[in-house]
Design a protein around this nucleic acid. Sequence first.
DNA 1: CATGGGATTGACT
DNA 2: GTCAATCCCATGC
Length: 190
Amino acid sequence: MKRAFYERPVLDVAQDLVGCVVSRGTSSGVIVETEAYHQAEPASHAFVGLTNRTRVLFGPPGVAYVYRSYGIHACLNAVCEPEGVGAAVLIRALEPVEGIELMRERRGVERLEDLCSGPGKLTEALGIGLDLDGTDLLRGPIVITGRSRAWSDVEVAASKRIGITKAADLPWRFSALGSRYLSRPALSRA
DNA sequence: CATGGGATTGACT
DNA sequence: GTCAATCCCATGC
């Protein structure tokens, strides 16, 4: 993936990342669920402006923003839009591809559908911690590559973001239609 | 310096 | 369905 891919409106990047591959060491998976966050909208960590915590969000695109959630889990984002704009795509779920046995060991569960079906789960499965905050997604250790042939025509569904209390109605969650590896089903009942 | 609130998960009623 | 775990960080005194 080139730097310019991330240097675009965060909503475009969030949709285009579905079907792409996240690799970390010998483990990898296809992105099946993302969410977009932008500084202009209060659910985003960048909404508060430039602070020590949000420094990476306002930096160059194509960089990993990893934060601790609820004191327990790490969550992985890809920083988007030009430097100076605070925006990122949260990677919410993967379909496991490589290094599945290692994922099972790290997660302590067996079912494929339980390995990476949530933002905190996939970071545990891939061994991604806060130490990788600010690392370059073009150079690694976390690398994102484009859709393979099999995923080139993936259909992407939009729905409301999960687990937030502010700006909860924005349809900024994107998922691979029909995937069994989502954190939650794509279509929420109205 | 003290406090409150999460971009979650898993266990339990 | 409810709820606790656990810690970083932004905010306010």
